[in-house]
Amino acid sequence: MSTTVWIILAGAVLTFLTRIGGHMVLSRFERIHPRVEAGLNAVPAAVLTTLVAPAAMNGGIPEIAALTVGVVVSLVAGGMMPMFLSSAAVLILLRHLIGQ
């Protein structure tokens, strides 16, 4: 097998270990401490934020405007699709208008 295939398979095994690892560690405990519980409940917001924030930091006016519209629309309308579509529309429009 080629080196590439080995890289892929090693990456796949390690990725799978991260996906079962957290559960295997946690399931060793009989009871989950309230602080751990609160921490785990914060995982979605915490991780997903880190995927957005640097992208916003590196973004220009179209990107910042798109994310701002996204926040406002989801606060007003709720739901994923209205937010996603309006935000993407603002992004594409401003990129064409500003030209970068």
Partner: peptide
């Protein structure tokens, strides 16, 4: 830039959870 937008939508969908705003601000910073 579609994925950051989608992930932002997911962040917003968890806003009813305890400590949502402090967690988001801390993780962002």
């Amino acid at each position: 830039f579609l994925l950051p937008i989608y992930f932002l939508g997911l962040v917003m969908s968890f806003r009813k959870r305890s400590f949502w705003l402090p967690v988001v601000l801390m993780s962002a910073a």
